[in-house]
Design a protein around this nucleic acid. Structure first.
Lengths: 196, 196
DNA sequence: AGTCCATATGCACATTGACGCATATGCGCC
DNA sequence: GGCGCATATGCGTCAATGTGCATATGGACT
């Protein structure tokens, strides 16, 4: 039930609509926990049924009415109880790593393409974290009232993206160094089953 | 369908039974992709139905008969096709990070306990990776026929555990430095909903 | 007028995952 | 002889997640 708790955690900052939560999960907290709007609306219904959040409808003209959700005292307590339980260490679950494990049985060229895309992705995210860090936690900041949790979070995120980006670079270098040795045989048949 | 592909990737090394796969997913590849034996058996049935693997029954006395699964040519092709598609960058999905995001609304003491447990966990895993690295890839190793994919994999794993462990240490330090400022209020009521 | 975008909410279905339970047997321990 | 453990396979159920589809409207662009 972690998504529900992630939503509760978000709502400690301020009341939000499902739409706003979806956008939040597309940026800040979403860097650590992905969820699309359907998942969020579904979870909001459950949380409301449990009495952990309360919806207040705001009538709008020109746009559909919105439901602003607020944490109830029960929700706050539930969050504290959840946070008091030991966490379970996650595993990485990255397709790319599975592919590396079977590197000798797959085609190198698509792998290289993929690694380049991923390198860019992780560099982007790293830059993004650094940007947010500078903006939210500038150098000469008063230590008193800082948002410690989010500072730590952003620092971890930045370092994580850094090492994954480094990893992609190394992998690309290693593949280049190796490329002379293996015969590159592209996929013969055209039925490359993509997503569409 | 990544678990299926992870199994195919494992079977490129050597034919295995469901039981052996389950053990593999409890150690090496399982550091990156968790799966219990029930999930694995279910997935094996699907892969067999698709013709991607082939089971050969070995009659045993004293133990239940076992089914050794081998990759079929179709399975090998399916793996190559899968590996030729772009991978999707995963998100971290760690409870601990959600808690950090709501640090101001939760209790610090259980958080501290959790962080200490996690520190130990990630240190253990780091040591484990380093141990395997030394064993499988000793210093003066011939560069010719090394298992490049797994070398990269282990190096990434080691570094990842390292930064997460460092992160736990930093978080603990920060909590200690902060502890004087906040009033610690333990949970009042006893209905701490645990797992049981 | 037609199309796309942002706002705002939600249902239905399929897959994946977590967890408990069941079965069968030989071996070592007490 | 009973107990737990390692070996070896699997079912059933429910929660969590992912993906596609549906609805409604005003404003900007073409």
């Amino acid at each position: 039930m972690a998504l529900g708790d992630a939503i509760l955690a978000c709502l400690t900052e301020r009341p939000m609509t499902g739409y706003e939560l979806a956008k939040t999960f597309d940026s800040s907290i979403g860097f650590f926990w992905k969820a699309d709007h359907q998942q969020i609306y579904r979870e909001l219904s459950k949380l409301r049924d449990r009495g952990h959040i309360q919806g207040r409808e705001v009538v709008q003209t020109g746009k559909p009415n919105k439901l602003i959700y607020t944490l109830t005292p029960e929700g706050r307590t539930a969050l504290r109880h959840w946070a008091a339980r030991p966490s379970t260490p996650p595993s990485i679950k990255d397709d790319l790593l599975i592919r590396l494990h079977a590197l000798d049985s797959i085609d190198i060229e698509p792998m290289r393409t993929d690694l380049m895309a991923r390198l860019e992705h992780h560099r982007d995210r790293h830059a993004n974290y650094e940007r947010i860090l500078k903006k939210r936690f500038p150098e000469g900041m008063a230590e008193g009232r800082l948002d410690l949790g989010n500072l730590l979070l952003l620092r971890l995120g930045a370092r994580h993206e850094q090492i994954v980006a480094d990893f992609c670079e190394e992998a690309l270098d290693a593949l280049s160094a190796m490329s002379g040795k293996a015969t590159v045989v592209p996929l013969e048949d055209g039925k490359r089953e993509g997503k569409g």
